Measured scan of single mutants.
Amino acid sequence: QKPIVRVFLPNKQRTVVPARCGVTVRDSLKKALMMRGLIPECCAVYRIQDGEKKPIGWDTDISWLTGEELHVEVLE
C-alpha cells in the first residue's frame, strides 16, 4: 500500500495524492488545484489535529503528512 494523503478541496471535492519524500504540499496539489481553476497562492491548507484545523505551509514536505487528511480552503 502506497503512502497517501487525502485532501478535501473547495466545493465539496476531494482528491488523494501520493505522499512522496522531498515533494512539497504545493507541488503535490498544484495539478488538482489548477484543474479546478485554483492556485496555491489563493488558498490556505490545513491539517486536522485533535479535531482542530491547524494551518500548514505550502512548502511542507508531504511525506510528513502520510495518512493524514488535509483541507484546502479559498482565502477570502
Rank of each mutant, 00 (worst) to 15 (best):
Q13M: 10
V45I: 14
V25C: 06
M34I: 14
W58C: 03
G57W: 05
I48G: 08
R26C: 08
I56P: 00
H71V: 10
P10D: 02
L65P: 02
N11D: 11
W58T: 02
Q13K: 04
R26D: 03
T15G: 01
G67S: 07
T60S: 14
K30H: 10
W58P: 08
K53Q: 12
K12C: 06
V16M: 10
V23Q: 08
R47A: 10
D59C: 07
I48H: 11
G37M: 06
C43R: 00
C42N: 14
S28G: 09
I39S: 13
P55D: 15
W58Y: 07
W64K: 15
K54W: 05
E41Q: 10
K54R: 11
E52D: 11
S28R: 02
R14K: 06
R36S: 07
T60N: 09
G37T: 09
R20V: 08
D50P: 04
A44F: 06
E69C: 07
D59T: 09
R14P: 06
V16K: 06
W58R: 01
Y46D: 02
L65K: 03
S63N: 11
C43Y: 10
L65C: 11
C21H: 08
V25G: 00
V74D: 13
R6H: 04
E52K: 13
R26E: 12
R26T: 07
P55E: 13
L38E: 08
Q13T: 05
G22Q: 09
L65S: 10
Q1N: 15
G22M: 04
C42M: 12
R47V: 09
G51M: 08
T66P: 10
E73R: 07
R20L: 12
P18C: 12
I39W: 06
D50Y: 12
D50L: 07
A32S: 09
V17T: 03
Q13E: 11
E68W: 09
L33Q: 02
I39Q: 15
M35D: 11
V74W: 07
C42R: 15
C43N: 02
V17Q: 04
T66H: 09
M34C: 07
A44C: 08
P55H: 11
I48R: 11
E76Q: 15
R36K: 09
L65T: 06
D50R: 09
V5L: 02
Q1L: 14
F8A: 12
R36W: 06
V5M: 02
V23D: 05
R6Y: 03
Q13A: 06
K53G: 04
L9G: 01
T24I: 04
R20S: 11
E52I: 09
W58Q: 05
D27K: 08
I39H: 15
L33K: 02
V72W: 00
V23W: 06
S63C: 05
G37F: 04
T60Y: 10
E73Y: 06
V72M: 04
M34G: 11
K54C: 12
K31V: 04
Q1R: 07
E52M: 07
S63A: 06
L33Y: 01
C42H: 15
I62Q: 01
L29E: 00
L29R: 00
G57Y: 05
T24R: 07
S28L: 01
P10W: 01
E73M: 07
P18G: 10
K30I: 04
T60F: 13
V45D: 00
E41P: 07
Y46R: 06
Q49C: 12
R26V: 11
L75E: 14
F8Q: 05
G37A: 13
M35F: 08
V72N: 00
F8L: 12
V17I: 08
K2E: 01
E73Q: 08
V16I: 07
K54L: 11
Q13V: 04
H71F: 10
E69D: 08
K54S: 12
I62R: 00
E73G: 06
W64S: 14
K12V: 03
P55A: 10
L65A: 10
C42P: 03
L75M: 14
N11E: 12
Q49W: 08
I39P: 13
R20T: 13
T66N: 09
S63W: 07
